[in-house]
Design a binder for these strands. Structure first.
Length: 764
DNA sequence: GAGCACTGC
């Protein structure tokens, strides 16, 4: 029996002395090689066999690529392969392959800058593949992406380019889906996924090269990964790191990845993009009403500019729907009065169901009559069109200069969305959307002076705008002891860190010295916010872990309730069917149980959801989350139990269990005849969100989130009894820690009452 | 009596 491709099925590892030894993996036992053959070309000599790791030249690699037989599989290359190869060689990045390899051989950490259209995301990992020769070492190449769709689609593309089956030599790994296998050499994945993996493999020992793509987006996960990789690089000289980014921030990345303070910055390689020029226009004066100005601009473009589609950026659903209505009305007039061409208008935002999002890819409408004025489409979008979705054919971009951004106030511990001016980098990204297919124009609805003087260079990285309790827990799990000196590219505000540490301490995930507790370690295993994880872990003590598991899943997905503007009353009636008088958490659970019931009785669940004004998409995604969380619970032997449904404690137990995680999110009614509540300890005045089902006026409620809009609301609330607080979270509800006020007096009265009752019962 | 920028585990 032929040992397939010689050493290909074994792995070479460098040991401490640097000498090489051959290790045979059980899976690739040569005696079982026939099981792995799948039509491979026996006796085939791969051009890779003659190549030595970390010495590959562009010429050698190209030669291997040109071979009739696929060097990675031993199968003949398809016709299509050579067709794609030709287009790959035309990409801007291809001209710099030699330069890239030389630099790659010389350095451990490399910053790579490439504009859109340079081909970096698909090509660089393949250049690395031909140099790392992962089949020799058994170590993979990883390339991270901020978004799942990108990880999936790029992996598919690269699998095609390498003429292999997706999931074999090239695969991807995202939450809920791992399409990689024992043969996988190159793996695309989300940044969050790599971060999760690293929690069980702090040296990232499975990889020989890690490529962080789209690093300029500065997602929370990418920022943490950069800091971790910087540390790991010092322990593991065999690990190579490539940080890929758009141009603007290159220097910042270079100096961050310089190894010591005295060391030179990490080397940089820049590749031009392939886009068309975009002409920028500013308004001479600032605009007072940017929606109005945007609508006018779109109409103006439609009236006078040559053929080409329009993309307008606005901040949110309401604004977008409003603008679409206004444009549509005005265009009708234009068509009637001045013989304008047809204009198809599409709204685009994240919460739009996928089939409606798809519509933006429809062709622009045909002229009304042959030879008439051309038709075009106009897409009115949120930031989703800035990075996540690319629409070809856009020639005109209208940019009012605003977007909704998450901000975090550590003092009040509230995350909220605020309409804010965008950064210069965002403005450039938006303008670039006009030049994907041919030269375009971008109309900025602000002055050139405002662009130069008022816009910040970069949007603040997410790490500076978020609650970090989750992140801090992850870092503790990763063994980072000293968070103060942890080398963040942009260190978060000390107060944000303090708040996170404090919250984790109250949740008993960290002890008083900041050390990770057993509970904290367990909580970090769950892809959940710490409060949710602690609630879930504690739930067996309340005999309702099945139910809390469902509620946790439902709280981890977007709202399942659908309330169309033209059918609110009917939607509210349907929701009332699921309403539980004790609160919204229980109502969610009722809806979920009804959904599972419908599913089990063999109904058409999509139809059932539609009739009940429930989101099928979000309910089934809650089901997915539930399955994942359940697996984690089983792994760690957290019991799945329920109180019998006919037991009168069924709902009480659930309400009590909520407090095990959310005892810090409790509010008390200010006075008996009021709608105003006050949050415990923070003393913030809040109102219960009008979407609630609770009708009877409770004195004490637990809430899932704090929403800051026109007023301060608490959303998803459930009635609780204050005695439970003293019992379930005695440390937090130690009366001495409360400021003088109504809540303190209420708790004091309560404590005395409880003591009296215990004295009577206990008899001392 | 109101809303949900966008991602990710």
């Amino acid at each position: 029996m032929a040992d397939q491709k010689g050493t290909k099925r074994s792995s070479v590892e460098s040991d401490a002395q640097g000498s090489k030894r051959i290790k045979t993996d059980d899976k690739y036992n040569p005696y079982l090689a026939h099981l792995n053959m799948d039509g491979a070309n026996d006796g085939f000599k791969s051009p890779l066999d003659e190549m030595e790791r970390h010495t590959t030249t562009a010429l050698e690699a190209a030669k291997a690529e040109d071979s009739d037989v696929n060097p990675w599989t031993g199968k003949p290359h398809s016709e299509n392969y050579f067709k794609i190869l030709k287009t790959r060689r035309d990409l801007p990045v291809s001209k710099q392959r030699a330069e890239f390899l030389e630099l790659y051989h010389k350095t451990q950490i490399l910053v790579f800058v490439g504009e859109t259209g340079s081909g970096k995301t698909t090509q660089i990992p393949q250049y690395v593949l031909y140099d790392e020769l992962p089949h020799q070492t058994g170590k993979l190449i990883a390339c991270t992406q901020p978004r799942r769709v990108a990880a999936m689609s790029v992996a598919q593309r690269v699998a095609n380019e390498l003429d292999v089956e997706l999931g074999q030599e090239v695969g991807y790994s995202i939450r809920f889906e791992n399409r990689t296998g024992p043969k996988t050499l190159l793996k695309y994945m989300t940044d969050g996924q790599l971060l999760r993996e690293s929690m069980h493999d702090p040296n990232m020992s499975r990889y020989s090269c890690i490529i962080l793509d789209e690093a300029h987006e500065r997602t929370l996960a990418t920022d943490i990964l950069m800091a971790l990789l910087k540390e790991i690089a010092q322990r593991r000289s065999d690990l190579k790191i490539i940080v890929m980014s758009a141009t603007l921030d290159a220097q910042k990345f270079q100096s961050y990845f310089s190894l010591g303070k005295e060391d030179p910055p990490a080397p940089l390689l820049a590749v031009p993009g392939r886009t068309h020029p975009v002409e920028i226009f500013y308004t001479p004066e600032p605009e007072r009403d940017y929606v109005e100005a945007a609508v006018r601009t779109v109409l103006q473009i439609h009236a006078v500019e040559p053929e080409g589609d329009i993309l307008l950026f606005l901040t949110g659903e309401e604004e977008i729907e409003d603008a679409c209505r206004r444009i549509s009305l005005e265009v009708d007039d234009m068509v009637r009065e001045s013989d304008a061409g047809p204009l198809a208008i599409y709204p685009l935002y994240g919460t739009l169901p996928p089939h409606q999002q798809q519509k933006i890819f429809d062709k622009a409408p045909e002229p009304f009559r042959k030879g008439g004025r051309p038709g075009r489409k106009c897409i009115v979008a949120t930031n989703i069109a800035e990075t996540s979705l690319t629409i070809d054919g856009i020639v005109y971009v209208v940019d009012p200069g605003f977007s909704k951004q998450k901000i975090y106030n550590p003092r009040s511990r509230v995350e909220s969305l605020l309409v804010s001016p965008i950064s210069k980098a965002s403005a450039q990204q938006r303008a670039g959307r006009a030049g994907r297919t041919r030269p375009g124009k971008c109309f900025r609805l602000y002055t050139e002076k405002a662009f130069k003087k008022e816009l910040i260079e970069q949007t603040y990285p997410e790490i500076l705008r978020s609650n970090l309790s989750n992140t801090i827990l992850e870092l503790k799990k990763l063994g980072v002891e000293d968070l103060v000196h942890f080398d963040f590219m942009d260190p978060p505000a000390p107060e944000t860190m303090m708040r996170a540490l404090e919250e984790l301490n109250y949740l008993a995930c960290l002890d008083d010295d900041g050390g990770l507790t057993k509970l904290g370690s367990l909580a970090s295993e769950f892809p959940l916010d710490p409060a949710l994880a602690v609630m879930l872990i504690s739930s067996p003590e309340f005999y309702c872990s099945n139910e809390i598991l469902s509620i946790t899943s439902l709280l981890s997905v977007p709202q399942i309730w659908i309330r169309p503007n033209n059918n609110r009353k009917r939607a509210d009636e349907m929701k009332a069917q699921f309403a539980h008088p004790d609160g919204d958490h229980l109502t969610l659970l009722n809806a979920y149980h009804a959904y599972k019931g419908a599913e089990q009785s063999g109904e058409d669940v999509k139809k059932w959801c539609h009739e009940h004004f429930l989101s099928y998409r979000h309910l089934s995604s809650a089901d997915n989350v539930r399955a994942q969380l359940k697996r984690i619970m089983e792994t760690h032997e957290i019991e799945l139990v329920s109180t019998p449904f006919n037991n009168k404690e069924y709902y009480t137990n659930i309400r009590r269990a909520l407090l095990a995680g959310f005892f810090m999110q409790v509010a008390m009614k200010e006075s008996s005849n009021s709608k105003i509540y006050k949050t415990v300890k923070d003393d913030q005045m809040v109102m219960i969100h009008p979407s609630t089902v609770v009708s009877s006026p409770y004195d004490w409620v637990v809430y899932n989130e704090f929403v800051l809009t026109t007023k301060q609301y608490i959303r998803t609330v459930t009635n609780i009894r204050p005695e439970w607080l003293l019992e379930i979270a005695p440390v937090y509800y130690d009366i001495d820690t409360f400021e003088k006020g109504e809540i303190k007096s209420a708790l004091t009265r309560l404590t005395e009452k409880v003591k009296r009752r215990q004295a009577m019962k206990g008899g001392y």
